[in-house]
Design a protein around this nucleic acid. Structure first.
Length: 776
RNA sequence: GGGCGCAUAGCUCAGUUGGUUAGAGCGCUACUAUCACACAGUAGAGGCCGGGGGUUCGAGUCCCUCUGCGCCCACCA
C-alpha cells in the first residue's frame, strides 16, 4: 500500500498539471455524445455554456479567473448531472487592442510604422503575432482547470467564423438593416477610427468655461467688411470648446427670452472668421443655464446637430481625422484642436471679444481604449438599424425565454434597449473582418457572400472593396452559433443550439450579451441561451479598483503558483454573490489553501483507515443499516443528507457561493473536527470499526463529489487514491460502480428528508454542548 | 436628471419563501508540538445587524423615510 502513503501536505504543483493532462487525454472535456465521435443521441440532453472569448492580446487577469472558475463550476456540475456538456473555448481578435499592440511592437523592434508596411503586410504580421502569442491566454485558462473542449477552440477571425460574419452582414444588408451614410459619430483622433457609443467613457473633469461675445452684424445685409462689427450689440455665449466656434452655424436662444428675443432673425459674426450666421430660437435652449444663449456647432456636437436638422442649418466640419483644424478653420488650419483653442482665444481676446473664463467641471468623453478625448464628427460610416432587433431582444427577456440572474439586471437591460441608437459597426482599422461591400466607379454597392468580380448594378469590373473593418463585437455577437457551424446546419449546431447558459461579468451586458441576443434572434430565430448569469467585478481588499498605477493588482498566475489553483477558484466562487462585486485579498486565498490542506489530510486519514481494514467473511456487505449506528454515525449521515438537499436547492437557484460555504462548513466542522475525532474512538472497538470506516468512506466520497466543481484538482487526486485503495480493500464493493475519474462521476442527488435527520442533529448538538462544557 | 447596489464582530464579507441564544475567514487572547492536518487543534473575547418610523405573535430579513459610500445610464452649452 505504499502507493497511497500520501504526503502530509497537498502538493498542488505536482497534482495540477498531471491531473489536467489526465482529463484531457481521457476525453472527459468532450460532450458525452460528440456527434463526431459517437453520433447524435437526442436522448442525452445537452448543456452548453458560452464563454466570453478573451482578447488574444490578453494576459490572464482576475476577471478571466473569475469567469473561468464560474463557468467551469457550471460545466462540471452539469457534466456530473449527466448532461452532455459543451464548453467551446476561444478568443476574439480584439481589433483596436491588437492592432495597437502589434503597431507598437513593430515600431519598437523594427522601427517600422503600419503605414510604411502597408495593409496587406501589416495584417500578415498581425497574424504572425497572433500565432506566436495568441496561445498564451489559452494555456493560462487551462491552468485554471477549465474543462472546455479544446478540440473545438475557435477564433473570431478564423475561416468558419469569418464566413458567419459575412453571412450575417449580407443578410442584414439585404434586409435593409445595415446602411451607410454620413452621421455624427464618435471619432477617436489618436486611433483614427470611429468608435461606438459604448466605447466612449464619460468622466467628470476640471475644465474651463469660456465666455465671449457674439457681435451682432448690421441690421441690413449690406456688403462691406464682414469682420468689423457694425453694431455694439452682442450676445454673450459660453463654451467649453472654443475651437468649435470655427464651425458655428447659428446662435440659438429661447423664444421667450426677453434678453435676446429682439435678436432673433438677425445675424451675428463668427469671431475671427467673419462669417455671418443667424440667431435662431429653439425651445431646447435653457434660459437659466450659462448665458442663456447657445452657439450651434452641428458638425461637432450631437445636440447642435439635432437643432441644425430642425432649422435646416448648414453643417460645417472643422476637424480632420487627427483632430487638426481643417480648411474650414481659415487661419487656424493645420493646428491641433487644443493648440487652436489657445490661439483662437488669444486672438479673440485681442479683438475684444472675450468676456471671461471660469473653472468648470464637466463630463469629458474619452476613448475606452486610447484614453484620449473623443470628438463628435460627421463621418460616413456603416450602421445597423437596431430598432427591430432591439424590440425582439426586449421581448425575449420580457416573455421569459431568457432569464437574467440576478433579476435586477433585467431592468438595466430593458432601459438600454428601449433607448438604443443605431450601432456604428465600421472601424477604420486593418485588423478585423473587412466589410463585404464593393464599389464601382459610379458608386454602386455590391455585397457578396463570396468576393464579387463585377458590379451587380452596372457590371463594371473595376470594383474595390470598402476599406473598413467591422466592430469586433459584431463577430463576438455571433459567437453562440458561429462557433457551432452556423450558417451551416452542422450536427453541432443542430444538437447544441440554442445553448444553455451565458455567463459573464455585468460590465459587458450591453457590449456583448445584448448583442448576442439581438443577433441570435435575428439569424437563428431562437434565443441563443435561456439563462444569463452575471457575476460581479473583482476589486482589491478594500473595494478599490485594481490598477497598475495603484499597484494593488493581484496576479492570478502568481497566486496559483503560491497557493494553488483550487484555493484561488474556491475563493472566487465562494466569495462572490451573483451580480455583486467582490473584494479579494491574498489572505482569503491562503485561508482556502488551508481548507484544501484540510481536505487532503482528512482524505489521508480515511484512506489509511481503509488500508488498515482486515479481511474477514461478509465484510464487504456493508450497507447503511442505521440500527447499529452510534449517535455520531447517524448524526453525520443526517448532516450530509441535509447538506445534499441544501446544495441542490442552492445550485438550482444559482447560489453557488452559499453552496460552497455550506460544503466547507460541513466538511471542516462536522466531518473533520467532530466525526473524524469520534471515529478514531469507534475504530478501536471491534463492533463499530467497520461501519465507521464505511461511513468515513461514504462521507469522503460524497464530499469530494460536491467539492469537485469548486476545487477540481485536489478532489480528483484524492478521489483517485480513495478509489484505488477501496478497490484493493475488503470494501471494494463500495467503489464497484465508480468511474475512473471523478470528473465524470455522478453528482450526489438529494433525497427526501425523512424526519429522523433533524432529531439526530438536535440530539448530537446537545452532546456537543455537553462535551464543550466538560472540556472547559 | 433617471436607475441600481452597498451599509452586519477590529478588517473583508455570508446570511433569497421573516422563526428558536446572528455566522465565516483573517486578526486578537490563553493553552496544546498527542500517531490525518501547526496550512493544525481546544477554549475564548468581540455585534443598539447605518438612523428613524411602520407591518407582524415574531424583522438583519418585508414596507416607508433619512444619512453616508459606490456603480450604471442620460444631449444641458
Amino acid at each position: 500500500m505504499a502507493k497511497h502513503e500520501l504526503p502530509k501536505a497537498y502538493d498542488f504543483n505536482a497534482t495540477e498539471s498531471r491531473i489536467y493532462a489526465m482529463w484531457e487525454k481521457g476525453g472527459y472535456f468532450k460532450p458525452w455524445n460528440d456527434p463526431d465521435l459517437v453520433g447524435f443521441n437526442p436522448a442525452v440532453e445537452p448543456f452548453v455554456i458560452t464563454i466570453p472569448p478573451p482578447n488574444v492580446t490578453g494576459e490572464l487577469h482576475l476577471g478571466h479567473a473569475m469567469f473561468v472558475s464560474m463557468e467551469d463550476l457550471m460545466v462540471r456540475y452539469n457534466r456530473m448531472k449527466g448532461y452532455s456538456t459543451l464548453w467551446v473555448p476561444g478568443s476574439d481578435h480584439a481589433g483596436i487592442a491588437t492592432q495597437l499592440m502589434v503597431e507598437r511592437h513593430l515600431l519598437k523592434t523594427e522601427e517600422v510604422t503600419r503605414e510604411e508596411l502597408g495593409r496587406e503586410e501589416f495584417v500578415k504580421r498581425t497574424w504572425d503575432w497572433k500565432r506566436k502569442y495568441g496561445g498564451i491566454i489559452s494555456n493560462q485558462i487551462r491552468r485554471l482547470g477549465a474543462s472546455c473542449d479544446w478540440g473545438r477552440e475557435r477564433f473570431t477571425l478564423d475561416e468558419g467564423l469569418s464566413r458567419a460574419v459575412r453571412e450575417a452582414f449580407v443578410r442584414l444588408f439585404e434586409k435593409g438593416l445595415i446602411y451607410r451614410g454620413p452621421r455624427l459619430i464618435n471619432w477617436s483622433p489618436g486611433l483614427k477610427t470611429a468608435v461606438s457609443d459604448l466605447e466612449v467613457e464619460y468622466n467628470e473633469e476640471e475644465a474651463a468655461l469660456y465666455y465671449f461675445k457674439y457681435m451682432l452684424a448690421g441690421s441690413s445685409s449690406r456688403g462691406g467688411s464682414k469682420t468689423r462689427p457694425e453694431s455694439d450689440e452682442f450676445i454673450p455665449v459660453a463654451t467649453v470648446r472654443p475651437e468649435t466656434i470655427l464651425g458655428d452655424t447659428a446662435v440659438a436662444v429661447h423664444p421667450e427670452d426677453e434678453r435676446y428675443k429682439k435678436f432673433i432673425g438677425r445675424m451675428v459674426i463668427v469671431p475671427m472668421l467673419g462669417r455671418q450666421i443667424p440667431v435662431i430660437s429653439d425651445e431646447y435652449v435653457s434660459r437659466e443655464f450659462g448665458t442663456g444663449a447657445l452657439k450651434i456647432t452641428p458638425g461637432h456636437d450631437p445636440n447642435d446637430y439635432a437643432i441644425a436638422q430642425r432649422h435646416n442649418l448648414p453643417v460645417i466640419s472643422v476637424l480632420d481625422e487627427a483632430a487638426r483644424i481643417n480648411e474650414n478653420g481659415g487661419p487656424y488650419q493645420g493646428q491641433d484642436r487644443f493648440e487652436c483653442r489657445e490661439k483662437l482665444w488669444a486672438d479673440m481676446k485681442k479683438a475684444g471679444l472675450v468676456i471671461k473664463t471660469e473653472k468648470y467641471t464637466t463630463t469629458i468623453p474619452r476613448s475606452q481604449r486610447g484614453g484620449e478625448i473623443v470628438e463628435p464628427m460627421i463621418s460616413t460610416q456603416w450602421f445597423v438599424k437596431i430598432e427591430p432587433l432591439a424590440q425582439a431582444a426586449l421581448a425575449a427577456v420580457k416573455d421569459g425565454r431568457i432569464r437574467i440572474v440576478p433579476e435586477r439586471f433585467e431592468k438595466v437591460y430593458y432601459n438600454w434597449l428601449e433607448n438604443i441608437k443605431d450601432w456604428c459597426i465600421s472601424r477604420q482599422l486593418w485588423w478585423g473582418h473587412r466589410i463585404p461591400i464593393w464599389y464601382c466607379p459610379d458608386g454602386h454597392m455590391t455585397s457578396g457572400r463570396t468576393d464579387p468580380t463585377q458590379c451587380a448594378t452596372c457590371g463594371s469590373k473595376e470594383i474595390t472593396q470598402d476599406p473598413d473593418v467591422l466592430d469586433t463585437w459584431f463577430s463576438s455577437g455571433l459567437w453562440p452559433f458561429s462557433t457551432l457551424g452556423w450558417p451551416g446546419e452542422t450536427p453541432d449546431y443542430k444538437y447544441f443550439y440554442p445553448t444553455s447558459y451565458m455567463e459573464t461579468g455585468y460590465d459587458i451586458l450591453f457590449f456583448w450579451v445584448a448583442r448576442m441576443i439581438m443577433l441570435g434572434l435575428e439569424f437563428t430565430g431562437q434565443a441563443p441561451f435561456h439563462t444569463v448569469y452575471l457575476h460581479g467585478l473583482i476589486r482589491d481588499e478594500h473595494g478599490r479598483k485594481m490598477s497598475k498605477t495603484y499597484g494593488n493588482v493581484i496576479d492570478p498566475l502568481t497566486v496559483m503558483d503560491e497557493l494553488g489553483t483550487d484555493a484561488l477558484r474556491f475563493t472566487l466562487l465562494v466569495g462572490s454573490t451573483p451580480g455583486n462585486d467582490m473584494n479579494l485579498s491574498v489572505k482569503k486565498v491562503e485561508a482556502n489553501r488551508n481548507f484544501a490542506n484540510k481536505v487532503w489530510n482528512a482524505g489521508r486519514f480515511v484512506i489509511s483507515a481503509i488500508s488498515s481494514l482486515e479481511e474477514r467473511p461478509g465484510i464487504g456487505n456493508w450497507s447503511p443499516d442505521t440500527e447499529h449506528w452510534t449517535l455520531a454515525d447517524s448524526w453525520v449521515w443526517a448532516r450530509l443528507r441535509q447538506l445534499l438537499n441544501d446544495v441542490d436547492r442552492l445550485f438550482r437557484t444559482f447560489q453557488y457561493g452559499e453552496a460552497g460555504r455550506q460544503i466547507y462548513e460541513f466538511f471542516w466542522s462536522d466531518f473533520a473536527d467532530w466525526y473524524v475525532e469520534i471515529a478514531k474512538g469507534q475504530m478501536q472497538a471491534e463492533e463499530t470499526r467497520e461501519q465507521t470506516v464505511a461511513i468515513l468512506t461514504r462521507i469522503l466520497d460524497l464530499s469530494l463529489r460536491l467539492l469537485h466543481p469548486f476545487t477540481p484538482f485536489i478532489t480528483e487526486e484524492l478521489w483517485g487514491h480513495l478509489r484505488e485503495t477501496l478497490l484493493d480493500s475488503p470494501f471494494s464493493k463500495l467503489a464497484s460502480d465508480w468511474p475512473e475519474a471523478l470528473i465524470v462521476a455522478h453528482w450526489p442527488e438529494p433525497h427526501q428528508l425523512e424526519g429522523w435527520e433533524e432529531s439526530k442533529v438536535a440530539d448530537f448538538t446537545l452532546i456537543q454542548d455537553i462535551v464543550r462544557s466538560i472540556r472547559n
